[in-house]
Each structure stands twice: as C-alpha cells, then as structure tokens.
C-alpha cells in the first residue's frame, strides 16, 4: 500500500503575521516559511505506517510555487520516499487544491491519504473533507490514533466531548490532529540523502482541473487590540476588582 501525504508550505507557526498596509492580505515578504505543523504530523504518520510494514511507500505532494520544494525536501529528509511538486504561482482555495489532489490520487492510487486537519495560514480545515467527498471515499478527520488491519484502518478521532473510534474501509482520507504523533527531526545525513530522492515537478495546468476561486478577499484587517490592563499585587485586590470593577463574580 502507498501512503500519499499532501503538504503545504505556510508562514512558520512562531511568526506573528502583520496585515499588509493596503489591507489586501498579510505580509509574507521575508517571513520564515515552514511545513504546516499538521502536515509534519501527517508525514510522520505515513513514515510510521511504512516502518510498521503496513505501507510500502510514502509519497509527498504539494501544490504551490517553486519555493515549496523546500518542504518536500524536508519531508523526504524525515523519511518520505519521493515527492511531487504541482507548480503554480496562484494561491488556491481548498476546493481547487482538492481538485488537483484528486488528479494526483487517480494517478498514484494510494491506499491512504494522510494529511493535516488544517493549514495554519487559511485555517480552513476543509481540504481533506472536500477531497474525500470528491473521491467518494470515507474520511477520518482529526485523527489521534491510526492502526491498520488489512483493508481497514481503525482511527480514533477527537470529537467535541472526548474521542471516538471508527472502522474505516480503505482507501480513505485521514486528517491528523496534533496528538496523533510527535514528528521526528530530520538528521543531517538524512537531509543529505533527501537531496538525491526523486522530486517530480509538473505544472498545475497540465492536470486540467478546475482551480478557479469561489471566494474573493475584499479586505484583510487587524483584529481589535485589547486595552492594556493593570497589574495587581495580591489575590485580595484581584477578587475586589472582579467584584466591584469588572462585576464578573
């Protein structure tokens, strides 16, 4: 079985982004970029499935600009076997990404698509579900545990009140939550080795899929800043303030 892992290059999670002066988006010039943290977890899960013998190959794919090659190399340094860059300079919505991924999946025939639950730039939390719908596959979103039994995966999912376990016929889409695993660091020798692993590049247009946007961003604004508060010296003072000033207790 093959595991396909779609990954996205995003502004690093430690960066506090700034809204651009013209309100058209956020400043990404000169900002540190990394693999989406949830996608690192999805890559790690794919590698573990291969290491456990449940999977034979881990293929990573990104739809993005030439620069997105670096996250593909990172994934291969972690242990992915090969990579596909679907090149475009456009910023795509989840619907469009799902259409492109569907075309790649039809070519690669993976048994599992392991992906992040959410990209931390657009915070959409949608691509996996859209893709599953378009493929007619089952989905196991927000996964915190995955085990494979032959033609089926058993997946524990995080739900509002706790967790729930599902039997999922393969092929299926699994989206990773933070608790699924702790991604490994790529060692220096593995980073060197990853340079020689195969990375195929193809143009998005060659897939002949609909990648039009359905959402137009009219403006992007900073959220309202909170007023600076006061520092207190004692618990007594705090309780007093909460009672008489804030009137919340």
């Amino acid at each position: 079985m093959k595991v396909l892992v779609p990954i996205k290059r995003v502004v690093d999670y430690n960066v506090k982004v700034r809204v651009s002066a013209d309100g058209s988006g956020v400043d990404t010039q000169g900002v540190k970029m990394s693999m989406n943290p949830f996608d690192e977890i999805a890559v790690e899960e794919g590698i573990r499935l291969r290491e456990s013998g449940a999977a034979k190959e881990v293929v990573v794919v990104t739809i993005g600009a030439q620069a997105a090659q670096d996250v593909l190399r990172t994934a291969m340094a972690m242990g992915a076997d090969r990579a596909i860059l679907v090149k475009t300079d456009e910023t795509l919505e989840p619907r469009a990404v799902a259409n492109a991924l569907k075309a790649i999946i039809e070519r690669e025939n993976p048994g599992i698509v392991s992906m992040g639950k959410q990209a931390i730039d657009d915070d959409m939390n949608a691509t996996g579900q859209i893709l599953a719908a378009k493929l007619g596959w089952p989905q196991a979103t927000f996964a915190s545990k995955v085990t494979i039994n032959g033609e089926r995966a058993e997946v524990t999912r995080e739900i509002d009140g706790g967790s729930a376990t599902y039997g999922v016929p393969l092929p299926a889409i699994i989206t990773a939550d933070l608790r699924l695993n702790e991604p490994r660091y790529a060692s220096l020798p593995n980073i060197m080795k990853a340079r020689k692993k195969p990375l195929e590049t193809l143009e998005l247009s060659s897939l002949n899929v609909d990648t039009a946007s359905r959402l137009t961003t009219i403006s992007v604004a900073e959220p309202a800043e909170r007023q600076a508060g006061v520092m207190l010296n004692s618990v007594a003072e705090l309780v007093e303030k909460l009672k008489t000033e804030a009137k919340v207790i």
């Binding site: 502004v11 982004v17 809204v19 956020v26 009219i218 992007v220 959220p223």
Partner: peptide
C-alpha cells in the same frame, strides 16, 4: 485567518 491575527472579509 492566521490564528485570528487577521480578519478576512470574503465574498
């Protein structure tokens, strides 16, 4: 978007 560090108005 971006963990609430920006608010996007979308149509």
């Amino acid at each position: 978007i971006y963990a609430g560090n920006a608010l996007a108005t979308v149509r």
